[in-house]
């Protein structure tokens, strides 16, 4: 299982989760403003360096986590020249959109790698997300490893009955997976049902006002970081719309 968050002593780890959530959102919005690879490629490396120096996550580690996106990147770069003429511009747009995708994933990864699950949910709730949604997300994330282990147990049980998923073509193998998916679905639904009863019996939703076991408070440093992030985003807006930088028209008039 991929576990994104690891405790480290870094500036990004210490930052208030709300600042990191706002920063990530503004960062994603900023990269959506541009489509010129001349801007997007350096931006990707800037965020990579931010992760390495401010988050203490090595560039190698960041690249490893971006590796699963490689097939999408290759397909994007290969498809654009086929649908856009001149082809050289198509390659350029392919590279642009790939960089956008990679930067988008990198920012999300940096948020998850520097913020614990509990802090992340708390951050979202403090920013105004209904706590029911926060709890839903938290429980969903909490149950991923449980379901992963359960799937392993079910596979072992079926293997003990002579079940061999490796044999046969794709369709045969997909059909064989029902032997795992059905018990997994039934167990998951039962767990969800039991959990809902357990939550209700502990008065979940009885009072609209909620308190938190752990409180988070914005420090002076957090306010400075927030102001800096908003400032940089405004600068990106000005560069794009005030100076007209970083954008190539895909459909020329």
């Amino acid at each position: 299982m991929v576990q994104f968050y690891r405790e480290r002593d870094s500036l990004l780890h210490r930052l208030d989760p709300r600042v990191k959530i706002i920063g990530t959102t503004l960062g994603i919005a900023a990269i959506m403003l541009y489509n010129d690879p001349v801007v997007l490629i350096p931006l990707f490396f800037v965020f990579l360096l931010i992760g390495a120096f401010l988050g203490k996550i090595s560039i190698r580690e960041q690249m490893t986590l971006l590796k699963p996106l490689l097939p999408i990147v290759i397909i994007t770069i290969a498809v654009w020249p086929l649908i856009y003429k001149p082809r050289l511009m198509g390659v350029l747009f392919g590279v642009s959109f790939s960089m956008r995708l990679l930067t988008f994933a990198l920012l999300t990864f940096l948020l998850l790698a520097t913020t614990s699950q509990a802090d992340l949910i708390l951050g979202f709730v403090k920013l105004g997300m209904p706590h029911e949604y926060g709890l839903t997300i938290s429980i969903s994330l909490r149950y991923i490893p449980t379901l992963y282990r359960l799937a392993g147990t079910i596979m072992d049980a079926q293997k003990s009955r002579g079940w061999e998923v490796e044999k046969g073509n794709f369709i045969t193998r997909a059909r064989k997976m029902t032997a795992v998916l059905i018990p997994l679905l039934v167990s998951s639904l039962k767990t969800a049902h039991e959990l809902s009863i357990a939550l209700e019996s502990r008065s979940f939703g009885a009072s609209p006002r909620r308190t938190f076991i752990r409180e988070i408070r914005m420090t002076k440093g957090d306010y400075v970081a927030l102001a800096l992030t908003i400032g940089l985003f405004l600068l990106a807006l000005y560069a794009r719309y005030g100076l007209g930088l970083g954008h190539i028209s895909i459909y020329p008039r």
Partner: peptide
């Protein structure tokens, strides 16, 4: 030998029987 081959000799009943049923 694979688990499938050995299942002719050794049967394993898991703790939660529902993990088998589909």
């Amino acid at each position: 030998h694979t688990v499938a081959e050995l299942s002719r000799l050794v049967g394993y009943v898991f703790q939660n029987p529902e993990h088998m049923f589909f």
